[in-house]
Design a protein around this nucleic acid. Structure first.
Length: 293
DNA sequence: ACCCAGGCGGGCG
DNA sequence: CGCCCGCATGGG
């Protein structure tokens, strides 16, 4: 059992971060339940509450021990982040105040860099529901079978596997035009590019390196840096973030993506990534700035 | 039927 | 450099 303040497993898992794309989420008896598979096995997390005290319990299969599962959860869900301090620093305007009130307990997760990379290559010009389906079919088709207890599951496909796959088989998983990006990035990550080296670089250098991969531009690179390396100065600008920032901070006036990024960097600096996630998810849930009929 | 989605690469001026 | 276009697919 882990007890922390300000943690919502449901919001954190379902807010467009990688776990949203490859984990199974449900609610049972009023508790959030999340199961996911890694190359070490499978973990099920259950959590109750999201405000003053959240109680987190977990079970594990495969090569996890109580301790390794626990350490992974603390890292993955950012349970050491000082949310009181983060909220204090972000709470400087009405929009952000409403967002952090509404989404209290939403954290930035830190996920495996390769999984994050593949998920966000798939995310381009796409929507969350479809990303989830594509990742699920790729895992089913190309993932590694793992024995857990009396059953088997499949873990996330390795880069080497996708690097050698037929484009037609990748595409059969519903990827659309992203099939070639997926295979190319898998080839590069399995050979010329070492995702493990990127963590040591600063934000700018790391972003430059990621953008050298085919199919990764600014927005996807920022998502990988934020959710795969927890570089909190990253500020991914997608259509939702752009709309919300224009609505909440520019009186509805159109701004370029570049202007939005510069605004975020100046306003939120090293916490831009946290601000981004609250803006993204609150904007989507409330359809901020979206034209409705 | 039309519009949209956690955008990107390539081609053009 | 900036701008503009096509791109696969499924849900609203």
């Amino acid at each position: 059992m882990i007890v922390v303040k300000d943690f919502s497993l449901g919001l954190t898992a379902m807010s467009g971060q990688p776990l949203n794309f490859y984990a199974d989420y449900s609610v049972k008896d009023g508790r959030d339940v999340l199961s996911y598979t890694t190359d070490r096995g499978r973990v099920t997390v259950k959590a109750l509450g999201s405000g003053e005290r959240s109680h987190i319990s977990y079970s594990h299969w495969g090569r996890y021990t109580d301790n390794t599962a626990r350490q992974e959860l603390i890292k993955r869900f950012g349970l050491r982040d000082d949310m009181r301090k983060i909220y204090g620093e972000l709470d400087t305007d009405d929009y952000m105040n409403a967002a952090i009130t509404e989404l209290r307990g939403l954290r930035i997760t830190e996920n495996d860099p390769w999984e994050t990379t593949l998920c966000f290559v798939i995310s381009q010009f796409n929507n969350i529901k479809r990303i989830r389906g594509i990742v699920g079919r790729l895992t089913e088709r190309f993932g590694e079978e793992l024995e857990i207890g009396d059953g088997t599951v499949r873990s996330f496909p390795r880069p080497e596997t996708l690097a050698n796959a037929d484009l037609s088989e990748i595409r059969a998983c519903g990827t659309g035009f992203r099939d070639k990006y997926i295979r190319k990035v898998a080839q590069e990550c399995g050979s010329t590019v070492d995702l493990g080296e990127i963590d040591d670089l600063d934000y700018g250098k790391a972003k430059e390196r990621l953008m050298g991969l085919h199919g990764i531009g600014e927005k996807v690179a920022d998502c990988i840096l934020l959710f795969g390396y927890k570089k909190l100065d990253a500020f991914p600008v997608d259509v939702w973030v752009k709309r919300v920032v224009e609505t909440a901070y520019f009186r509805g006036r159109k701004r370029s993506v570049r202007e939005i990024r510069r605004f975020a960097e100046r306003r939120w600096g090293p916490l831009a990534g946290y601000a981004n996630q609250y803006i993204f998810w609150s904007g989507r849930e409330n359809r901020i700035g979206k034209v409705v009929e």
